[in-house]
């Protein structure tokens, strides 16, 4: 306990630019998370639609794809993609990555990292979406079909808005998991916050070269953990906010006088 609270061991926080160095690296995690989230949500939606599609081959293929990638440990996927990607892919990215990207996102392994995150999370999200869509009463879709909407129109205007809204909590908790999982790319040498923390502590493979204080890894990692707790707590709070607002909105619709909604006779 003495070791943990000894102010000397926390000195690295205020030494030189250590704090800025860590926070900048944490920003990389958030960027990777946002990119992977957007892609995973989009791919997940396509997979979910595939898994409920009418043609059997499409349905079976989508389901098999989802089941495979949902059941493989994410870190195994990321490592495999990083180790097996051909030299041409590496060269392609290091040559053509736009210059405005931070160094970490121009790493030759970033495609493997983000690719793994998207493959895994899109499969998990596809299951979440599929459950949301299937939880809707069949009548909704049949009514839409009876109104003459095409399949895509039924999905876009009737099924998805309701089905996905129900799945907001499950989706957000998966996005929190994704946010945590961005630390896994440190294992394929992408300079994000865990790796930067290890650099500060001098355990990243290279000896500590900074002129400041070599930080104790325990304290660095507690600090990094705190950053994630704050970010993810904010995310879960946001989702709870959305939920209560949503349920209040639905409640008002339900209790509103029906007469005004009735079509003119």
């Amino acid at each position: 306990m003495g070791y943990l609270f000894d102010p000397d061991n926390w000195e690295w926080v205020v030494t030189e630019n250590n704090l800025g160095f860590l926070l900048e690296a944490f920003l990389i995690n958030l960027q990777i998370a946002v990119i992977a989230m957007v892609l995973a949500l989009a791919v997940g939606l396509v997979l979910a639609l595939g898994a409920i599609a009418r043609p059997a081959p499409v349905r079976l293929a989508a389901k098999a794809w989802v089941d495979v990638f949902r059941n493989i440990p994410l870190i195994l996927l990321i490592l495999y993609l990083a180790l097996s990607q051909p030299q041409s892919v590496r060269d392609f990215w290091s040559d053509s990555a736009p210059g405005f990207l931070p160094d970490a996102l121009r790493s030759e392994f970033i495609l493997a990292g983000i690719g793994g995150l998207v493959l895994y999370n899109s499969a998990v999200l596809a299951e979440v979406f599929r459950a949301g869509i299937l939880s809707l009463a069949r009548g909704q879709r049949e009514a839409a079909a009876a109104l003459g909407l095409s399949y895509l129109q039924q999905m876009r205007h009737v099924v998805l808005p309701q089905g996905l809204r129900r799945m907001v909590p499950a989706t957000v908790s998966q996005l929190i998991t994704l946010n945590k999982d961005t630390t896994l790319v440190s294992i394929i040498a992408i300079q994000e916050v865990v790796r930067s923390g290890r650099v500060l502590a001098g355990t990243a493979g290279n000896p500590f070269t900074g002129s400041g204080v070599a930080a104790p890894i325990l304290h660095v990692m507690i600090f990094v953990g705190l950053l994630f707790v704050i970010a993810n707590y904010a995310l879960s709070r946001l989702s709870r906010r959305l939920e209560t607002r949503e349920s209040r909105r639905i409640a008002t619709v339900r209790t509103a006088p029906r007469v005004s909604e009735a079509p003119p006779a």
Partner: peptide
């Protein structure tokens, strides 16, 4: 909310 990797470190 803490990544498992951070806990391991």
């Amino acid at each position: 909310n803490v990544p498992l990797l951070v806990l391991l470190f």
